[in-house]
């Protein structure tokens, strides 16, 4: 049973960050407290265009239950979401739409590319398909697979959570981040 506790499918409650605790109080840095709150309440925006989207529906379903990781509430408005999940083939004609959705999301925001098509174009090495969404928007985590199993998608979400929990509060104001946005011709 101890082994089962460590499986990604049986998450434990979020561990408290480093800090000073005493009777009736707990003190930690603001950054860690904010990171803890953010990573355990991600609001994903599912951008599902094909079969990877079906796997995601299984991931959200009762069996795999993504809600256990704090992503209970899917947001279908980019303005109210902080994680863009691109799942499936993105045609070149869809590219500007995806880019617009990313721009409309409020900072801080993260992107996960689920499946071979979103990551690299996959088997669709052809004139009409975008060869990976990282050509138009920055991507934080890539999930391989065609399509990936729900376990892999959950693994990707946990990788995102690690990034979210450890992100510096000043990262989005850094010169590095500005250069990244400039690279994608944003702002």
């Amino acid at each position: 049973m101890a082994e089962k506790q460590n499986s990604i499918l049986t998450p434990t409650t979020a561990a408290a960050p480093e800090g000073i605790s005493g009777q009736g109080f707990f003190a930690t840095s603001l950054e860690k407290a904010v990171g803890l709150a953010r990573k355990n309440s991600l609001w994903p925006l599912p951008f599902a265009t094909s079969c990877c989207g079906i796997e995601f529906m299984a991931t959200m379903g009762s069996h795999y239950d993504l809600a256990r990781f704090g992503s209970e509430r899917l947001s279908f408005s980019p303005r109210q979401s902080d994680l863009l999940m691109v799942m499936g083939t993105v045609a070149k004609k869809m590219g500007p739409v995806l880019r617009e959705i990313y721009i409309q999301m409020a900072e801080p925001k993260w992107v996960i590319a689920v499946g071979a098509c979103a990551s690299s174009g996959g088997i669709f090495d052809t004139y009409s398909v975008l060869q990976g969404i990282d050509r138009i928007i920055p991507v934080d985590v890539y999930v391989p697979g065609c399509p990936p199993r729900p376990e892999q998608i959950i693994d990707g979400i946990i990788k995102i959570q690690e990034l979210v929990g450890n992100e510096s509060l000043r990262r989005r104001n850094s010169a590095e981040y500005e250069a990244l946005m400039k690279k994608y011709n944003m702002e």
Binding site: K92, G121, T126
Partner: peptide, 25 residues
């Protein structure tokens, strides 16, 4: 059907089938 700024005609036989912008292959 294709993107507006496309200049080629992709179903002509001389059009290369694979995307020419891939560098990882």
């Amino acid at each position: 059907l294709n993107v507006d700024d496309m200049t080629a005609f992709p179903l002509r036989k001389d059009f290369p089938l694979e995307d020419q912008t891939r560098e990882d292959k």
